[in-house]
């Protein structure tokens, strides 16, 4: 029987010898780096508190809002529910990594500005990373599919219709480039 209870897991001394930090190799926004992380440090906290990559936002810290969305090995995930130590060897792309080295905006970033697809801006990096991930996934064929595909990213300012427009603009720009 798989019994879950607090008594069998929370007991004992809290001072049990625990491993310290372990080295984790990550490629973040194209740059390879080795960082020492504790097992319980999330990818989100690693980015924000240790690497000063504060573009990735903490909205709920529980996978319920999408503000922390980053791309891990090309796929959009909630970095708040990702233990950094588990991602040894992975490639991470954050909002900072979407911007060109010369500061040029990614087409999705530009589209968000053009379409005024945000107000307070706090959910925005997560929205943009999520949108980039969604387009890669290849299921964003209609307005309804985009709305559904972006429903893991809450926006309390209510910019949803403009987010939809921005994604369509960026998508069209990408398609055009590919066609050319």
């Amino acid at each position: 029987m798989n019994a879950f209870s607090e008594s069998d897991t929370a007991g004992g001394s809290t001072m049990t010898a625990l491993p310290g930090k372990s080295p984790v190799k990550l490629t973040i926004n194209g740059e390879s780096t080795t960082v020492e992380v504790a097992p319980w440090t999330t990818l989100l906290d690693l980015l924000r508190e240790y690497l000063d990559l504060t573009g990735t936002k903490k909205g709920c810290d529980h996978g319920q809002c999408g503000s922390c969305t980053v791309l891990v090995d090309g796929k959009r995930v909630n970095s708040c529910l990702t233990l950094a130590i588990m991602k040894d060897g992975s490639e991470i792309t954050t909002i900072e990594g979407l911007t060109g080295k010369d500061g040029a905006l990614h087409p999705m970033q530009q589209a968000f500005v053009d379409c005024d697809a945000f107000q307070c801006g706090y959910c925005t990096p997560g929205q943009i990373c999520s949108a980039v991930g969604m387009i890669k996934e290849g299921h964003a064929h209609s307005d309804d599919e985009i709305r559904e595909g972006m429903s893991g990213n809450l926006c309390r300012c209510g910019a949803y219709p403009h987010i939809l427009n921005a994604i369509k603009q960026a998508y069209a720009a990408t398609e055009k480039r590919t066609a050319a």
């Binding site: 607090e6 897991t9 049990t16 810290d61 529980h62 909630n78 529910l81 990702t82 233990l83």
Partner: peptide
Amino acid sequence: NGAGRFIAGGTNLVDLLKENVERPR
């Protein structure tokens, strides 16, 4: 001995860890 947890996606376990519902060693 009951104080271990498997982790894969982590989507539920890390959530519950932060809520202090799960307290594995």
